[in-house]
Nucleic acid binder design. Sequence first.
DNA 1: CGCGTGATTGATATATCTCAATAACGGTGG
DNA 2: CCACCGTTATTGAGATATATCAATCACGCG
Lengths: 271, 271
Amino acid sequence: MLLLHLLQYFGIIYFNFNSKYQLSNLIRSNLILKDFQARAPESRCQLCAVNSICLPSGLSKDELCELENIMTTSKVVEKNTQLFNDGEKFHSLYIVHSGMFKNSSLDENGKERILRFSLPGEIMGLDGIHAESYQSTAIALTTSSYCKIPFNQLLDVSEDFPIIQRNLLKIMSKEIYSNKKTYIDLGSTAKLALFIFNISQRFKKRGYSEKEFYLPISQRDIANYLGMAEETLSRIFKKLQKLGAVNYKKHILTVVNQQQLKEIAQLSSPK
Amino acid sequence: MLLLHLLQYFGIIYFNFNSKYQLSNLIRSNLILKDFQARAPESRCQLCAVNSICLPSGLSKDELCELENIMTTSKVVEKNTQLFNDGEKFHSLYIVHSGMFKNSSLDENGKERILRFSLPGEIMGLDGIHAESYQSTAIALTTSSYCKIPFNQLLDVSEDFPIIQRNLLKIMSKEIYSNKKTYIDLGSTAKLALFIFNISQRFKKRGYSEKEFYLPISQRDIANYLGMAEETLSRIFKKLQKLGAVNYKKHILTVVNQQQLKEIAQLSSPK
DNA sequence: CGCGTGATTGATATATCTCAATAACGGTGG
DNA sequence: CCACCGTTATTGAGATATATCAATCACGCG
């Protein structure tokens, strides 16, 4: 706790000490040493851990400066905070800075449908551009932080700096591509194995361990996302552990045998 | 047949008379009166039936002209023609002008996975932008036609005409959004009903009948796309017909009771 | 007219859902 | 710090939807 006060004092990190649970939450969400709100503006993105895969990737210092001028960087929010809501007027893109968010919407029967989990460096709200209203809801799954970019200002800036437009197109293209990896014709075992494998690779890309990480998602939400019953998910988690592929305890996921996990994920359609 | 020759003579349509089956193919693919290859260049997009939902939507005459300068318009291809292949170097976007294409790729086991069916006005190849290589394969399901836009030239032109960039962003946003409508937690009956309903609405948007249309997709492909066995699909088609919701014979699909179809599509998850 | 592909039908196996009950956990207040 | 409560996860038994295998049928096309 003392350490945290010191870090805050020197402007390395910033948060409110209003709960005895915040420390563990911060550690879990990998916020520590990654939140530079107190730093000088011109270096915020440059110091960010995920800048290489984020919108500012490949930008010069000048371009970065223009971009940072219009954006709000690294706002910290508690678990369950909602950034935007399905149907609300679209105005800004939100980028995950740390932690994790879930994006969902309600189906015709009012049931929640989880569309994706967003990790640091990923842009949320892209689906709202065409309709000028958000098409999904973003909710923090753990203490998290985000950056916010007003979309119209982004368009203005990008007219002067085409590379920003290009990056945006690439990011959107990647998102369209990523829907390729659909879980539709996989059996439940392959679904879960693939989900874990994909998440693991995404963590790796962000500089976290691919072997062991804190997964702030409830099993209910995983089951919802993968389109299976909660009970089935529980059983299959157990199965994967028995097989020696992964370990999962109190939201700490360990990939024990990555090769095996990959093979299970590729099991052809025994639905 | 005489009528066709006359139409061609007056430059309204263009095609080769090299098969006695082409006439019916043309009618099926809605090519007639929609293929303006022989017209003056400055009017091609303006005369296109789907320009309002296509990339040129909202462009002025000047902007349209710039765009048409760099694109190849309305090339006719036979059934089974491949426009681009998964893994191939990315260079151009392809827009469906008439007919239908399927976009697919192979999974780890070499099995085909159909990702989407592309209708007139829809852009193919967007998933290739980020990797600079196509991430899927495009194959004509019937006699079809397409327009082709070299991507780098499109970027150049759009630097002068921001509205083109904006349209592109909107189109990509829409595609990201459309993945919301995932089939993952639906039962087979709801899946097929939703698929038919969606296709019907897409046809409607393009000026075709929403009640009756030619569907140039094999049941195998529909089953593949929806992630179910071919046999199941056949049975469910029969079931929907028995229920009086749709009729399907020789690739002619008739929506008999749209309200009922919609209700079946919304049946909550009895997988 | 016949061939090959695509579609249908039936019988059986199996994966997954559902319902119901119990267990473990995380957060709250005393 | 501990006991409590609501939420989240686990386990079991039974019901059901869908896959699979195999055979037949229909159709488009030469």
